[in-house]
Every structure is written in structure tokens, then in C-alpha cells.
Nucleic acid binder design. Structure first.
Lengths: 202, 202
DNA sequence: GAATATCGATACACCCCCGTATCGAAAGTC
DNA sequence: GACTTTCGATACGGGGGTGTATCGATATTC
């Protein structure tokens, strides 16, 4: 979260190990009990860390949760950058595959669903996690407009919604997992619907 | 929840009004605070009912929630039935507008998100709420295939995902509310992408 | 009218968590 | 070694929810 200071201050340094343990415990508790299902004391116990150590770093539960989420998601990687279609497919595939490697699949739905009772928490989450990823999506679509494959009057934000909502919904509801061909069908259907009028769909 | 007995027993009968108030309060609290965000006392206070009255009917919070969800079972209305485009638009508009009138779409995502705590609850809900609504969507699309407006090799389930996921995501994340023109853009983009010939866009 | 069951209201003991304070020990810098 | 900061552990008051018990009032049946 905070880069270690270049000049070390006097006194015992904060244990990075304790910090990692607290973040990991927060993620596990989020996944298994939801936002309201645990407290700071449970975080400390699960992490095997004193409650004081938790409060010293994060003054509130919201701050702890947001940091844990950022720590979990990491920096969003840019798409390969070849074709628009290939990039969109890669982004959708990543949305499908990446959450299954860590706890994101179990946690993100809970966070998003808590929007009404913790608006500030969700706002921070949108700022630090959702928005950067949307921006990557929109950039690819914008590239498609400039290169002529997508009609220029297309609403980039709406198309972003249209494309990433299905896998997002699947992650939330855990109803199913799309196969590669199904993702291709989604992308191709949308791209065909966005082809400049009077032109052939590639 | 239990149908009134045919032969009335002696003593003051249970107030159906208090029961409705408790169920309604449970739904409102579910929608606004989630499964873990409230307790029996909050239900009694919100309903304007004594805590005893709640405990007399439902021995535990889970029982109360299950009954409240069952009480919420609403038959999804069929679409107007004119054109495929009009029906899809009507369904999307309803998904956008209904959450304020009916608590179902506000509660459903939360229940689904809490699936790890109560898997049996989620299963019942998918069966009795989600699936009927999906079926209505799919029926309209199927009609479009038969009438020739939609290519016959389109995956109806996937197109259902594609169309209803954006408003569903909006309902879950509360990020925004689509305007009518934006819903039309979504429907038209998908329908154009599903045109049988695949050559010219109308 | 007598009996019965529910009503709202209130009280109670119990438990859990919050957020802070305190303590001695440990780990660093000067 | 002196100083500083964090460590784990523990204790504390406060707040709030739980589930039960009790109370007089009310509504209904017999």
C-alpha cells in the first residue's frame, strides 16, 4: 500500500508480514462472511495478529477492506494490442479466468451488492478498481472507432457495458462459465451491430 | 404464510396485519442492509411491532427471511407482445423501473451474493424468480427467430445474457440508470448484430 | 361471563464487538 | 547504551443485539 520510506525512522519497523496477514485475513473473511459478517477483532484473530496492529494501520474497517481489495486485484494489465476483436476477446477471457485464481470471484459480488448500505466503500472500490479496468475497455473500443471498424457515433460507455456485463453477471451469480466460442459470439454480435452502416461486417 | 385454520381456535387470533408488516419490514431491511446487516429487533422496530410478535411466528432469522422471500414471489408479467424489438425494450424498461416498485430486483443480487452462507436459499431463488424471467426473455427471442428477424443459429441463452446483463449490472452496482434512448441503442445494436443476412445494416 | 391466546411494552442477563489504553518485550536507529 | 517505535497481550467501558420472561390490555371462542 504505502511504499517503504527511503530514510528509515528510528524505532522498530512495521512488520510487513503482519500487514500481509491482515490483508489476507480480510479477504478470506470477506469471501466467507461478507462485509457485515465480520469485524476488526475477527481480522486480528484470523491473521494471528494483535488488534492494535490492525488499528494502527487502518483507522476504519472500510479503509482496511479497500486496501485488501486493491491488494487482491493488483494493477490491471493492458490488452495484447493486436486487433480490436482480439483485444476485446482477451479482456473478456481475463474477466472470466482471473477471478478464479484468487478470491475475487467470491468477494467482488458481495462488495458490489453492498452498494446501498456502504456507498462510500463502493465509491472507493469503483475509483480504484472498476474505473481503471473500464478505461482499458473503452480505449480498445476507441481504437476501433479510429481504425474504422466501429461506427463513430457509437457510445463507448454503453458498448463497454454491453460487452463486459455478461461475464460480470456470471461472476456475480456464478450461474455459469462462458466457453471461448460463446465469448466470441458475444463480441462478434456486438461488433457486427456496430459496423459502420452500409459496410460489410468483417 | 400459513393459511388461516378453518376452525378457529379459542383466544385472540394472530394479527395478519402484524405479519404482513413484519414480512414487508424484512424485505426492506434485506434490500437496504443485506442478510447480515440487520437483526430481529430491527425487523420489529421497522414493522412497528413488538419483538415478541416476531419471535412468536419465526423462531430464527433464517426462517423469517425464507418466508419473506417466499411472500415476495410475484408472477412476472408477460411482455406486451407487439414487435420483438418493442417487447425487448419493454422488458429492459421494466428491469430498469421495477426495482423502485418491487423489492425483488434489489434483493435478488444480495441473496445471490450471499450464496456462500445460504446455498439452499439461492437455489430456491434461482428456481422461482430468475428462471421464469429468463424464460420470458428467451420466448421473445425465439419469436424473433421464427418470424425471421433473428438468425436461426443465434444462441438464445447467450443473447438473453447479452441483453439483460447491462441493466442487471446497473441494478446491482447502482452505477447509473439507462435512459430510454440508451436502452434502444443496446437493443438495436444486438438486433443488428443478429440480423439473418449479416450483410447490410438497416 | 370464563377461558384462552395474542397484542404491545418493558425488563433482564448474556454475549459480542468496538475503539482505546496500558503493559513489558522486541527490534530497530543514533 | 539511550531512544524510539512496533510488537503481542490484556483489560476496560460503552453500545447494541439476542432470546426469554413478564405484564396488563385486547379480541375471540365456548
Amino acid at each position: 500500500m504505502v511504499s517503504p520510506p527511503l530514510v528509515r525512522k528510528p524505532g522498530r519497523p512495521r512488520s510487513a508480514q503482519a500487514e500481509q496477514a491482515a490483508l489476507q485475513a480480510t479477504l478470506e473473511l470477506l469471501a466467507s462472511h461478507g462485509v457485515h459478517g465480520f469485524g476488526m477483532e475477527a481480522v486480528a484473530n484470523t491473521a494471528g495478529v494483535a488488534k492494535t496492529t490492525v488499528y494502527r494501520r487502518w483507522p476504519s474497517k472500510d479503509d482496511l477492506i479497500v486496501d485488501a481489495l486493491v491488494h487482491m486485484k493488483g494493477e490491471p494489465a493492458p490488452p495484447p494490442g493486436d486487433s480490436v476483436r482480439g483485444d476485446l476477446l482477451a479482456l473478456l477471457r481475463r474477466m472470466r479466468d482471473q477471478p478464479r485464481k484468487n478470491l475475487a470471484l467470491r468477494i467482488t459480488p458481495r462488495i458490489v451488492a453492498e452498494g446501498e448500505c456502504c456507498p462510500q466503500l463502493v465509491a472507493k472500490f469503483r475509483d480504484r478498481v472498476v474505473r481503471p479496468r473500464r478505461a482499458i475497455f473503452a480505449a480498445v473500443l476507441q481504437r476501433g472507432i479510429h481504425s474504422g471498424g466501429i461506427r463513430s457515433d457509437a457510445d463507448v460507455e454503453l458498448v463497454t457495458d454491453l460487452l463486459w456485463s455478461p461475464p460480470l453477471t456470471c461472476n456475480v451469480s456464478r450461474a455459469r462459465v462462458y466457453r471461448d466460442e460463446e465469448l466470441e459470439f458475444l463480441v462478434d454480435t456486438v461488433l457486427r451491430g456496430l459496423a459502420p452502416s452500409g459496410r460489410l461486417a468483417p
